[in-house]
């Protein structure tokens, strides 16, 4: 326990980097994912194909492979960026198809009957989408999206293996320095991850309970 308190500043700086990674790549993934999701439901066939291929390919690539590309292969190809930026790019690209799938499944989850009913009542395209479809799709989208961000939180640890000094890398370093207190140090690291993931998970379950049963 003492080891944790002694090294609390180190922990906190690692935790800060983790949070920064989470927020920046989360936002970037949200932007890319929304674009991909919009492409997937667009009426233009080529856009749909491109988005589908992108989703399938990126979803089936391990994050470590994406990170290796951004951290080792890109510099060899001539890019000059710090490892932190490389990690953010890799994490956002890797997370974006999951965001797109969550959004798409939310929209697809609204029964066709809802749209049919809205149309037959005489609502136009804009009204149907904004008054009937989106409010329902939104509810079905938020809980899976939160789950995507929980996964992203855990995935930021992989960046620790690629020269980004975040929580995992800090833990590894501290464990190397204090060989006699490995267990408390790593449990400390775990606690910091749980501080983010557990409340988010509870929030997702809560929102799901509140929203889905109503329909």
């Amino acid at each position: 326990m003492d080891v944790i308190i002694e090294n609390l500043p180190t922990y906190l700086s690692g935790f800060g980097t983790t949070i920064l990674l989470l927020i920046v790549s989360g936002l970037a993934a949200l932007v890319i994912g929304t674009i991909v999701a919009a492409m997937r439901i667009s009426p233009v066939a080529t856009l749909r194909t491109v988005a589908t291929v992108y989703t399938e390919v990126v979803r089936n690539t391990p994050l470590t492979l994406v990170l290796i590309f951004c951290a080792f292969v890109l510099p060899y190809l001539g890019s000059r960026m710090p490892y932190f930026v490389a990690a953010i790019i890799a994490l956002s690209v890797y997370t974006s198809p999951f965001v797109a799938e969550a959004l798409r499944s939310g929209i697809n989850g609204v029964p066709v009957g809802q749209a049919e009913a809205a149309r037959s009542v005489g609502l136009g395209f804009r009204q149907t989408v904004s008054l009937v479809i989106l409010p329902q799709a939104f509810r079905m989208t938020i809980p899976p999206l939160i789950n995507v961000f929980i996964a992203l939180t855990k995935n930021t640890s992989v960046a620790g293996g690629f020269f980004v000094i975040e929580l995992f890398a800090v833990g590894k370093q501290l464990a190397n320095d204090n060989g006699d207190a490995v267990i408390p140090i790593l449990l400390g690291v775990a606690t910091f991850y749980l501080i983010i993931t557990v409340p988010l998970g509870l929030l997702a379950v809560q929102l799901e309970r509140k929203w889905v049963v109503q329909r």
């Binding site: 855990k154 995935n155 992989v158 620790g160 995992f168 833990g171 490995v182 775990a190 557990v198």
Partner: peptide
């Protein structure tokens, strides 16, 4: 279950490796 679900796999690997 909640404890293991909320932790990165990588951290668990490191834990098993070191401990």
């Amino acid at each position: 279950i909640e404890f293991f679900r909320g932790m990165p796999v990588l951290l668990m690997m490191l834990f098993i490796l070191l401990v």
